[in-house]
Design a binder for these strands. Structure first.
Lengths: 100, 100
DNA sequence: TTGACATATGAGTGAAGATTCATATAAAAT
DNA sequence: ATTTTATATGAATCTTCACTCATATGTCAA
């Protein structure tokens, strides 16, 4: 592999890990693990401001981590693919099972 | 599981993912994948200031990601366990193989 | 023991990023 | 049509964090 590609790959990997490296975002992902939820439900569940949640959802949308559908005035979010689920679960188990 | 524990677990997971969410740190980890290297070698390989590298190494040390031994005036670093290697490689392959 | 080299570290700076605040948009209800 | 409810978003603020700069520590060589 070229050095350029190597750099690009590392940078992509950083981007991926960054998704999971914020408390609010990870709680959203953790919640959405369990199904689909409206912004309201997410906001209530995480006890965080609606605005903060919406900003993070925008981020996750832009990164193709979540998808959404509209239902009346509500917007229902869910995880985009299992891809994300997998990485989250692997990290979660590593972080919790293997204490040093 | 209690809610307290859940929160703690998520926070631990965030910490874990944060390790991998910086370009310099990830390059260090990627390099150390290949064996042990002195600070000098790391500094040269990553073309970054010695100070910046040392600061990140301190972080990685504190998080038990790397271990080190002294050899004369040199300090030789290597990865602490396979644990870290695994997560890095999983993230790396997800980030690079599965393009959207 | 003095000087050169390797690494570590505290303080300061700057940039990225997460939250708040105010407000916009859009759909439903009255 | 107007009000209420749900969500989104721009700007400002505040925080986190990575880097630089200066300097400390420690080891070897002369």
């Amino acid at each position: 592999m070229s050095n350029e590609n190597k750099i690009t790959n590392i940078k992509e990997t950083v981007k991926l890990f960054k998704i999971f490296s914020d408390y609010t975002r990870l709680r959203i992902i953790d919640l959405l693990e369990g199904g689909e939820f409206s912004v309201q439900e997410i906001t209530d569940a995480l006890d965080t401001s609606q605005s903060a949640i919406s900003h993070q959802l925008k981020l996750l949308r832009d990164l193709h981590v979540v998808k959404f559908r509209k239902e009346g005035k509500q917007v229902i979010y869910s995880l985009q693919d299992n891809h994300i689920k997998e990485i989250f679960l692997i990290g979660y188990s590593h972080a919790t099972e293997c204490k040093d």
